[in-house]
Nucleic acid binder design. Sequence first.
DNA 1: CTTAATGCAAAGGCTTTGCAGAGAC
DNA 2: GTCTCTGCAAAGCCTTTGCATTAAG
Lengths: 143, 143
Amino acid sequence: MGMTAMFSDKDASSLLRQHDINPTPQRIRITALLKSKCVHMSAEDVYLAINRKGKYLVSKATVYNTLGLLSQHGVVREVIADPGKVFYDPNTEPHHHFFDVTTGELVDIDASRVRVTGLPALPPGATFEGVEIIVRLRSPKDK
Amino acid sequence: MGMTAMFSDKDASSLLRQHDINPTPQRIRITALLKSKCVHMSAEDVYLAINRKGKYLVSKATVYNTLGLLSQHGVVREVIADPGKVFYDPNTEPHHHFFDVTTGELVDIDASRVRVTGLPALPPGATFEGVEIIVRLRSPKDK
DNA sequence: CTTAATGCAAAGGCTTTGCAGAGAC
DNA sequence: GTCTCTGCAAAGCCTTTGCATTAAG
């Protein structure tokens, strides 16, 4: 069973090249962070995770610019579930999400067992960008 | 055929009372606006629609407070589709949405023909808040 | 008079932008 | 030298909050 998905800087670098992105040190770090920790992170999360321990490595502007770039090129996926901030998901395979309105946490739902039928055709001329199912739930202990 | 869904201030008033909300003039106006125009509006949209024509009727703070209140009490539904602003949907029946990333426009998808199967059970203790399917699309003419 | 709702302005959070400086070739 | 990327700070939305004013019973 499965190898743990390690994600080295080298992996990040070649992934970026595959997506026609110039692999700068900052982009490599952000990509490696997201792809190795397989969790959903906001821009702030990424910024803090990269610059923790007193080492300053990437500015906030670059974090935002890079996350936008990675989304546009399909390296990561934006998830709009929390009013007020965007999550970035390293998993670009089709899948859906639970969103906990109490904690603001996002949890993957494997799409392989989920089936959606009966969606109408797109308006004429429109191109498909993606489908997302979000199941909103409330944690216990929420007053 | 059918009657056009008119929505008077009186209707709004009794709807608010049904949901245990004290029907103040501002709340009545906002409710009547959303329920008569059956479209998705942001807080800003509501604010502008109510205060147009030079008549000043409701402050922005009250618009935000009221929309939050209406959502909490199930009079309208929040739709999180646009990163950066919340839409309020007068339709509280189960249904889904197209979101046009070019124009920022939200269009209803009738849920009666849509079927979703295979969703996993909620985490233990969690209470269900809602499901939303958002189909993202891009308009033609987007450069 | 007491309680609730409104409105203004200020503050707050997330994100984008302008532009100077640093880096790559 | 040219082109690209980065980083800082400022600015921009959208939204929330504090608090005085007004309305309701």
